[in-house]
Amino acid sequence: MDSMTMLQTASALFALAALGGLAMAASRFFGHKHNPPSWLAMAHGLLAAAGLTLLIYAAFTVGVPWSAALAAVLFVVAAVLGVVLNLVYHLRDRLIPGGLTTLHAVLAVSAFVLLLWASFA
């Protein structure tokens, strides 16, 4: 598989993960001010992890543009924050803090834009 196909597939996986992220953010900020359902958080994380794995694989095997490599770094930081949100707050039934959620989203969206630029420009 060539690098562009892998980047475009990773973009599609991240787009699906983003839909789950939007649903979770809506649940947290605009719903009844409660944490999103666990199944949605797991699906979001699984799709994002699949996209990140493919992106990193592409970077190490076939090479990717600098913007895709930077996107991978930002996605890793966003993933670490996502794990913190899940393990420290969500699984302990503590309300997920808005600041960390916003930081997680800003990093992920920034990385997604960079990845789209590398994939389709």
Results as ranks from 00 to 15, higher is better:
52 L>H: 06
109 V>Y: 00
53 T>E: 06
81 L>I: 15
116 L>E: 14
87 L>I: 05
92 R>W: 03
63 G>F: 04
117 W>N: 15
70 L>K: 00
37 P>N: 06
85 L>P: 02
112 F>E: 12
42 M>E: 12
86 N>K: 05
58 A>I: 06
92 R>D: 15
69 A>N: 09
39 W>L: 12
52 L>T: 08
110 S>A: 15
21 G>P: 13
67 S>F: 04
114 L>E: 09
77 V>G: 01
44 H>S: 02
12 A>F: 08
22 L>V: 15
15 A>K: 03
88 V>Y: 07
72 A>H: 03
13 L>M: 12
66 W>Y: 07
70 L>G: 01
91 L>P: 02
36 P>D: 10
6 M>V: 04
111 A>R: 06
116 L>Y: 04
6 M>C: 13
33 K>G: 15
11 S>F: 10
51 G>W: 01
18 A>Y: 04
56 I>L: 13
90 H>L: 11
34 H>F: 06
30 F>C: 13
88 V>F: 09
49 A>S: 14
21 G>C: 11
40 L>D: 14
76 V>Y: 00
50 A>V: 06
3 S>E: 12
118 A>D: 03
63 G>P: 14
57 Y>N: 14
43 A>Y: 02
84 V>T: 07
99 G>P: 07
64 V>Y: 00
42 M>K: 07
99 G>N: 13
37 P>M: 04
54 L>A: 10
71 A>H: 00
91 L>S: 13
4 M>S: 13
73 V>W: 04
10 A>M: 05
67 S>N: 12
16 L>K: 05
78 A>E: 01
23 A>Q: 07
75 F>N: 06
1 M>V: 11
119 S>R: 03
98 G>V: 01
51 G>H: 02
19 L>K: 07
102 T>R: 02
117 W>V: 08
63 G>Q: 07
41 A>T: 15
92 R>A: 13
10 A>W: 00
85 L>S: 09
7 L>Q: 01
3 S>D: 11
49 A>R: 04
85 L>N: 11
91 L>I: 05
54 L>C: 11
27 S>T: 13
91 L>M: 12
32 H>L: 08
69 A>L: 09
95 L>K: 12
68 A>E: 03
97 P>H: 02
52 L>Q: 08
116 L>T: 05
85 L>E: 14
13 L>S: 02
34 H>C: 08
29 F>E: 15
79 A>E: 13
13 L>P: 01
87 L>Y: 06
